[in-house]
């Protein structure tokens, strides 16, 4: 199976298809992250590092 797999991988075709697929996914992710309305679902998670220690001020 492996042999067939790599024999079928044309030197010029695979990178081309992979690149097209990649660009498609990339554009979709960009749109999803930047254009889509920011969901508030993640806000509590994103704020996790901002919780200070009980005895942590800013550097004193």
């Amino acid at each position: 199976m492996w042999k067939t797999f790599y024999q079928g991988m044309d030197y010029t075709e695979l990178p081309l298809f992979a690149m097209l697929l990649f660009i498609g996914v990339f554009v979709a992710v960009i749109l999803r992250v930047t254009v889509a309305r920011r969901a508030s679902d993640f806000d509590p998670l994103a704020a996790m590092p901002l919780q200070p220690d009980a005895n942590e001020g800013e550097s004193r």
């Binding site: 992250v33 920011r38 969901a39 993640f42 806000d43 998670l45 994103a46 704020a47 590092p49 901002l50």
Partner: peptide, 12 residues
């Protein structure tokens, strides 16, 4: 985020 005092730009 800790040093800037603000959450990460996009958790997603």
């Amino acid at each position: 985020p800790k040093a800037a005092g603000r959450p990460v730009y996009s958790y997603r």
